[in-house]
Design a protein around this nucleic acid. Structure first.
Lengths: 222, 222
DNA sequence: CGTGATAGAATTATCTATAATTTGCGATGG
DNA sequence: CCATCGCAAATTATAGATAATTCTATCACG
């Protein structure tokens, strides 16, 4: 997470901008002007351009040739598209990873679940949730697949932050526990099915918090 | 397909380099040196750097932070990873596209199938095969998903060209016809299943041509 | 008087040219 | 024979020049 000295300037800039887009500090449709960003970072505009390209590859920005680059707009349809893609790819990853899951990994995943239930803000929850998914999927040893899933997680996080910027109450993670239980019993396909449905719920249906208040028509799942 | 005037220089360079990587003219692991490429195109190295980044986003090249960029190595494991990802994502796309498929589209897809069976070289076959898949999947109207599938197709094509550079004989497309038949009868799930298996076969098992000679241990499917 | 088009100016993206680090390799000395 | 220093090549960053687009203001025409 720390900005390593070995990273190129473009990479560091793109990370900062990505955070801003995900957190909502930069709103959808906002123009990213290279000179301004360059001035802010005390850099030249060439590394800024490369940072923009990285954002575009992640799907966080879109650039029209010679007309500049804007923060990618994302509506409910986009959210659902990302959810469906995550469901398809995470199911594949879990299926491949399952044979390599050890007891230790499952225990760590359980820790992550507990952490996400204790999270007091969206950022903490997102991090714990991400850790859970990554722990279970990483052993598939398919780097391209994992990279694609990471980008989709970023897009999902963006949606999360837009829905709950201030008030936040952690949900109880039934699905996570069910997935872990199935994996512990060696029922891979059951776990895969739960995971797929779990992820697909993003942006699908309303959810009521523990206090009984109904939130926006979005689901808090990851 | 023509180089449009509106495209940026970096985009045009990346297209040319992508073709070379896919066709095998640039071998896996080969170093891409920005000065040399810049000299070849009579350009400076900044647009070349941006072209490299695009290639990296497509998975055709990998760059190590201050050590240059190389053509992505791809072994059989990588090919299978791409095949699995394509199967998962194309299945999703077809499922979403099915309700919007018209008679006209299916007819065009059948034309594409015939064209691929008549193809006299790998390039022609690849193009026809790509057209078939794109026709059936595009109506899902999920731009991010389609872009991801396109990149995976490029990686697949790369593998195809590496296996059959010179001699080539078009296979008969049983799977394509079975998919079309199922779709015409409204049996979406059956079509999805065939498509998924069809794509997964890439890099999986040997194939014998019409002349009876056994090719390398790869399958010609797409 | 209002609407539309056009020319010019300002802004912005793109490209070139040049300078500054950094890596890798080779030679030299211990 | 190994380690360290130094040189060469390549990547990364900066600054300046070029080209394209957008905005604005003026003028013609209805």
């Amino acid at each position: 997470m720390a900005k390593e000295k070995t990273d190129t300037l473009a990479i560091r800039i793109s990370r900062v901008l990505a955070e801003r887009i995900i957190s909502g500090a930069l709103e959808p449709g906002a123009r990213l002007r290279q000179d301004h960003v360059a001035a802010e970072f005390g850099a030249s505009h060439v590394p800024v351009r490369e940072a923009f390209q990285r954002l575009e590859a992640q799907g966080l920005a879109i650039s029209e040739p010679r007309r500049g680059v804007r923060v990618a707009a994302f509506d409910l349809r986009e959210v659902r598209e990302v959810a469906e893609m995550r469901a398809a790819l995470e199911a594949l990853a879990l299926r491949q990873a399952a044979p390599h899951l050890t007891r230790a990994i499952l225990d760590q995943a359980e820790d992550a679940t507990r952490a996400s239930e204790k999270a007091r803000d969206v950022g903490a929850w997102e991090e714990a949730n991400r850790r859970f998914h990554r722990l279970l999927l990483a052993p598939c040893a398919m780097p391209r697949l994992l990279a694609a899933i990471d980008d989709l997680h970023a897009a999902s996080a963006r949606f999360l932050f837009s829905a709950w910027r201030a008030e936040w109450e952690a949900p109880t993670e039934h699905d996570h526990r069910a997935i872990l239980a199935a994996l512990r019993e060696g029922q891979t396909e059951a776990a895969v099915t739960i995971l797929a449905r779990h992820v697909q719920r993003i942006g699908r249906r309303p959810v009521t918090s523990a206090t009984g208040t109904t939130r926006e028509a979005f689901a808090i799942v990851g």
